[in-house]
């Protein structure tokens, strides 16, 4: 009996240590904490851009491309939630955080448009000038939003 309770105690202690370590890594507000989410979003928007490119050359299907855009939208939402979880005590940090959030929401908007255009592109041949024009528009929107985020990241010393 004493034996099993001893091993139980050891297991519980180990779990407590692990839990402590995990919670000990809770976010510290700075450019460092913004780095993770910013990189995730940067990767996500680039992936969506690539999907739109591929759709424009008719290399991918509307389903696969719109799934990619939808997935990336989810990534951006998750990253936004992470940043909302950080508190920024100084004015400087608050400004940076708000800039990043603004950039994320621009990207979200672009991704939403991209998803809708990609989904709608299923009926028509991708080569149709109408479809191409719509894809080109969302591609431009994605690129602009990407550049905005990139310059923000450079400014904050991320990358």
């Amino acid at each position: 009996m004493s034996k099993s309770s001893r091993s139980l105690a050891v297991v519980l202690a180990l779990l407590a240590v692990i839990a402590g370590l995990v919670s000990g890594c809770s976010p510290r507000p700075s450019a460092d904490t913004l780095e993770g989410p910013a990189k995730e979003v940067s990767s996500a928007v680039r992936a969506a851009s690539l999907a739109v490119d591929l759709r424009m050359t008719d290399s991918t299907t509307a389903s696969a491309a719109s799934t990619a855009a939808d997935d990336m939208l989810g990534e951006v939402e998750a990253a936004t939630d992470k940043i909302h979880g950080f508190d920024a005590p100084t004015q400087e940090e608050r400004t940076l955080r708000n800039d990043v959030l603004a950039s994320f929401s621009a990207i979200s908007r672009a991704l939403l448009h991209a998803r809708d255009v990609l989904t709608a592109s299923s009926g028509e041949p991708a080569a149709s000038s109408d479809g191409q024009a719509r894809l080109a528009t969302v591609q431009a929107e994605l690129r602009t939003a990407t550049d905005q985020l990139d310059s923000l990241m450079t400014k904050a010393g991320i990358q």
């Binding site: 990767s43 992936a47 999907a51 591929l54 290399s59 696969a64 997935d71 990534e75």
Partner: peptide, 22 residues
């Protein structure tokens, strides 16, 4: 090279679509 780190299955298939189309 495109700065995309994979987090979803939809990203896994992108290179194949680029190489071989639909």
């Amino acid at each position: 090279p495109a700065g995309i780190s994979v987090t979803t299955l939809s990203e896994v298939v992108l290179p194949v679509a680029q190489a071989g189309g639909q």
